[in-house]
Every structure is written in C-alpha cells, then in structure tokens.
C-alpha cells in the first residue's frame, strides 16, 4: 500500500525532464520540455536534469539545449516502451535524487507512464499543461491546463507534495536555441533487478506509413470533413500536407465514413491538437470537433457554406469548394 510520508520540502531540488526516446532517437518534445525546464530552473536558481531511458540512445548529451545533468540508462530492456519497468526505474531515481519538479511530454507514452509514477510516489500530477510558472514565495509550480475541451483554463498547485509533476503538451513550449558552449555532467545509471517486477512484453511495433508526420508532431494540420466527400478528397489534402510539411487531420464524420483511419481524428473522441496552423476543409465545426482544435494559433476554414460554426470562429474563412480552391493553392505554392 502507498502511504504519504511527511516530506521536508527543502530536500527537493532541481527540475527534471523525462526525455521521450523512440528506438534510440530523442523526440522533439524533449527539447521543448528542456526549454521550459530551463526557464523554471533559472527562476528557482537550480539545475536542469534530463532523464533518458532507452536503448542505443543517440547523442544523449543535451547540454546544448539547457540540461546541466544527463542521467542515462541505456539498456536493451528499455528498447520498447514497458510502462511498469520505466515507472519503477523512475520512482527509484526520484527517491534517490529528490527532484523538486518533473516535466514529461503529454504524449501517448508520457500519459501512460507518468500517472503511474505519480501514484507510486504519492505526488500531484497535472496533465496536459500549456503554461508553467513558479511561485517565488514557496517554489510551488503553477500549472495551467485547459479542461472541458479548452473552454476553461485551470491553474493547479500541489503545495504539500514533492516532486511536483506535470505533463506538458507537445508544441506548446519553446526549445532553447542551441548553445554549443554549454557543458554538463553525465550520470550513468542501470536497471535494478527490483525494477523488473511485473513486466509485460512488447511483441512487435508497427509504424503508420500512410502519414509521414503525425498529428502531435505537426506544425500544420490540413483537416478534412464530410465535405471531402471521400478518399479522393483526402488524397488532395495529403498532397497539400506534403507540400507544406504538415499532417492530415479529420472530423469524425470522415473517419466514420472510412475515408481515413481513426488515428487522424481530431476532437472530443479523437485527439486534441494545438498547432500553429489548422486548415479545416469541409468541416462544419460541431462543438465535439472544435474542442479538439480551438487552441490552434491560426485557424483557416474552407467551406461552401459561409455560415457554419467553423467559418464563424476561423481567423480566415474562405467561402468556396475545396475541390477548386485546394488545387489552386497547391499551384500557388508550387510557383513560389
């Protein structure tokens, strides 16, 4: 059973980032987390540590992006994502080094791992943060996150517990500009036999070949709805996405019609996205779709009907047929 221990807050120091490592490659969200951790650590006058769990990790020295200490466990048993093993390893490292703040990516992996760690350490965890700050009086992390599909912003504290843990949405925080002069300390750790209790096994990994860029990593999403009328419409969206280096999103209506897999669905029962640009083509903008994308920076809508909720809320609303406008747009981009 997990019970709460009275803690001495001043024993907890430094800001940790849990790196996201996929088959040895450090994922971009890690650099964003480091950027955010650096800002917090400067306010708190402490160090940034990054924890890397994986196998054959390439270039784990992340000092140039803001880390002061890199803790690495490079082990074949960490090649695939095993929630229990990583959670046990982290819990042990947390007890050993006692960080004050831990940041983790709000990715499918981070959102599976970090709640497990938060329960095992009896710590507060705030999911999907979009803003982080420090209360200078007591070191409390002020964690702001959207709830109710972005209709409310809630600020959350965890004053009586340390470390304070937050998962952070990808693409929200800014990575530091690379500073090759920064240096730091490398700490090599290893898996303890006790970490391995109760593990499962990953049998095989498949990668979506249909879309080179996934929704979470994209800066631009080109999304289609019932107005895309079928697979041909999505082919057009894919062409534009390829041109601009974006990903393809979809409304539920398009997914339910079988034009594109569920992994592309944006909205209440799909993914929540927060990209720089979101182009909605033939999506009317029912509330269940809007809650998944209304926090994007720039929203562009293309629809035959100028009166839809999406056309009303968009920053730029183009009235017209997507089958006529998109080829013109691709043309224009080609000419540049």
């Amino acid at each position: 059973m997990i019970t709460r221990n009275d803690i001495e807050k001043s024993n907890f120091k430094n800001v940790w980032v849990i790196a996201e490592v996929d088959r040895g490659i450090i994922q971009p969200v890690t650099l964003e987390l480091l950027g955010s951790a650096r800002t917090l650590a400067n306010k708190r006058n402490c160090e940034v540590w990054v924890i890397l769990l994986g196998h054959s990790i390439q270039h784990p020295e992340l000092y140039a992006y803001g880390a002061d200490v890199c803790v690495v466990i490079d082990d074949i048993r960490l090649n695939h994502f095993i929630d229990e093993l990583e959670a046990n390893v982290l819990t042990r490292l947390i007890k050993k080094y006692q960080p004050e703040i831990i940041l983790c990516g709000a990715t499918s992996r981070g959102r599976a791992l970090i709640p497990r760690v938060a329960v095992l350490t009896y710590c507060g965890l705030t999911a999907d943060c979009t803003q982080l700050d420090i209360d200078p009086d007591n070191g409390d992390l002020l964690q702001t996150r959207p709830a109710f599909g972005g209709n409310i912003l809630a600020t959350i504290r965890s004053s009586d517990h340390r470390p304070q843990i937050a998962s952070v949405r990808p693409r929200v925080m800014k990575a530091m500009t690379l500073n090759p002069d920064r240096d730091g300390i490398l700490i090599m750790e290893s898996i303890d036999p006790r970490d391995e209790i109760n593990n499962k096994k990953v049998v095989e990994v498949f990668h979506d070949t249909q879309s080179a860029i996934n929704l979470a990593d994209a800066e631009i999403i080109i999304a289609g709805g019932r107005g895309a009328h079928g697979k041909a419409g999505f082919e057009l969206l894919r062409q534009l996405a390829q041109k601009v280096g974006g990903a393809v999103g979809a409304s539920r209506a398009a997914v339910d019609s079988g034009w594109i897999p569920y992994t592309h669905q944006v909205g209440q029962t799909g993914q929540t996205v927060q990209t720089k640009i979101y182009i909605a083509c033939g999506i009317s903008g029912q509330i269940q779709h809007l809650v998944g994308m209304q926090s994007c920076d720039l929203i562009i809508a293309i629809d035959k009907n100028p009166d839809t909720p999406m056309m009303q809320m968009a920053d730029i609303a183009i009235t017209g047929d997507m089958f006529e406008i998109l080829p013109e747009l691709i043309n224009e981009i080609n000419q540049r």
Partner: peptide, 30 residues
C-alpha cells in the same frame, strides 16, 4: 488529493475578427 485547483478562468478570446475571403478559386488562393 495532492493537487489543488487554485484558479479557473476562460481562455483568452481569439484575438482577431474573421477575415472573409470569397470569389474565384484563384483569387481565394492568392
């Protein structure tokens, strides 16, 4: 519960008014 909600507020409204574009497909793209 280790966490406390200390503040809730509506998100900042979307800043700009909608820019409306219509006309020929070529014009719209440009």
């Amino acid at each position: 519960s280790p966490t406390r909600v200390v503040k809730t507020e509506p998100p900042a409204p979307r800043s700009s008014a909608t820019v409306k574009i219509k006309g020929s497909p070529e014009h719209c793209a440009q």
